[in-house]
Computed example of a mutant assay.
Amino acid sequence: MQLMRVVALGRDPMAVQPVLLLQETGGRRRVLPVWVGVPEATAIELARRRVELPRPQTHQLLLQIVQAFDRRLELVRITMLRDSIFHAELVFDAETRVSARVSDAVAVALHVDVPIEAEDAVLDEAAVAEVAGLADAIADEDADEDAPEESEEVERFRRFLDSASPEDFDPS
Rank of each mutant, 00 (worst) to 15 (best):
I78F: 02
D120E: 11
A68D: 06
A132M: 02
R55Q: 07
S172Q: 15
R82Y: 04
I116A: 08
F169D: 07
E149W: 10
E40N: 05
A127C: 09
V36L: 10
L134K: 03
A126E: 03
P56A: 05
P115D: 11
G133D: 02
M1R: 13
R55T: 10
D142T: 11
D12A: 11
R72E: 12
L32G: 04
L75H: 05
S165A: 14
V76W: 01
A105F: 03
P18L: 14
P13Y: 08
P166W: 06
V122P: 00
I44V: 04
A126N: 03
R71F: 13
S165E: 07
E40Y: 01
V108D: 01
R48H: 03
E145I: 15
H111K: 06
E95W: 02
V31F: 12
S172L: 13
G10P: 00
F169L: 15
P54Q: 13
R5V: 02
D146A: 14
P171E: 05
V16L: 10
R49E: 04
V66L: 15
S99M: 02
D136H: 11
R159F: 01
F169W: 12
V98I: 12
E130G: 08
E74V: 13
E130A: 10
L22Y: 11
D140H: 04
V19F: 12
D168K: 10
V76P: 02
M14F: 05
A68S: 15
S172A: 15
D162S: 07
D93W: 08
S165T: 14
S84G: 04
P56F: 00
F160S: 07
V51W: 01
P171L: 10
D162Y: 01
L90M: 13
L61M: 11
P166K: 15
I44A: 05
D144S: 13
D113G: 03
I44M: 10
A143W: 00
L22H: 13
T58S: 14
R72Y: 09
L9A: 11
Q64S: 15
L3M: 12
R50N: 08
E153L: 09
A43P: 00
S151H: 08
R72Q: 13
L110T: 04
P33D: 09
V108I: 11
A41D: 00
I78K: 01
A105N: 07
V34A: 15
D142P: 00
E155Q: 05
R156L: 06
L22T: 02
E145L: 13
F92M: 14
H111P: 00
R5Q: 12
L90R: 03
A143V: 05
R30K: 15
L21F: 07
L22F: 09
P171V: 15
F169A: 12
V38Q: 06
E125W: 01
R50W: 05
H111V: 00
E149P: 01
R72H: 11
G37R: 08
L75R: 09
L21M: 05
L110P: 04
G37S: 08
R72T: 15
I65E: 03
P18G: 13
A88G: 09
G10W: 02
